[in-house]
């Protein structure tokens, strides 16, 4: 069993970090994981994306052209990656910045207003964590417990209320994906 997701957005949206946190949760569950970045000039202010593969056996190709899941955090990412989602797969759209949906009928689409939810919690920089919460809750690629414990481990050592704030936005993402009608029009 192998599952994949591509997180894509602007440089600076925390895309790479969201992917890394997801990979850590996969590891915590004892799975094989691989995190593959885009790298180079496009990282600097342009489109940034990473793919995370979680599998129960040795991961072969790190290149996944038709990922099972895509999370588009901005419009260029939607245009680039929505056509690649595998048939039957899942497309999550950051509806705070993207006002359209993919015309595709063969995939599920979930709208998550990442920026709005993060801003409501006065944590505007953590849209990646909102997205991560929504993705994990909706896809079940890793368990919510594993993801939460990774957040505890990674943010627990930071100063102040970083951990509390992070968990808050994560749970907002989780609620959004679990069918909060305000947030999601799936």
């Amino acid at each position: 069993m192998q599952r994949e997701v591509t997180f894509a957005g602007f440089g600076g949206q925390g895309i790479m970090t969201a992917g890394k946190l997801l990979a850590l949760a996969g590891m915590a569950e004892g799975k094989e994981v691989c995190w593959i970045p885009s790298y180079g000039p496009e990282m600097r202010g342009g489109t940034a994306y990473c793919t995370v593969v979680v599998a129960d056996r040795l991961i072969g190709s790190p290149i996944v052209n038709d990922p099972e899941n895509v999370f588009a955090f901005n419009r260029p990412s939607l245009d680039k990656f929505a056509p690649r989602v595998r048939t039957g797969g899942l497309l999550l759209i950051n509806s705070s910045l993207i006002d359209v949906r993919s015309p595709r009928q063969d995939i599920s689409q979930v709208l998550v207003p990442c920026n709005d939810l993060a801003n409501q919690l006065k944590n505007g920089r953590s849209i990646n964590i909102v997205g991560l919460g929504a993705f994990v809750a909706r896809s079940g690629m890793v368990s919510l417990e594993a993801q939460r414990s990774v957040l505890h481990k990674e943010f627990g050592k930071k100063k102040g209320d970083v951990l509390t704030a992070t968990l808050e936005v994560f749970e907002a993402g989780v609620r959004a994906a679990q069918g909060d009608k305000e947030a999601v029009r799936g």
Partner: peptide, 10 residues
């Protein structure tokens, strides 16, 4: 290759 440098794995 560049991927060996840039990928993350356990």
């Amino acid at each position: 290759d560049g991927l060996i440098g840039q990928m993350m794995e356990p």
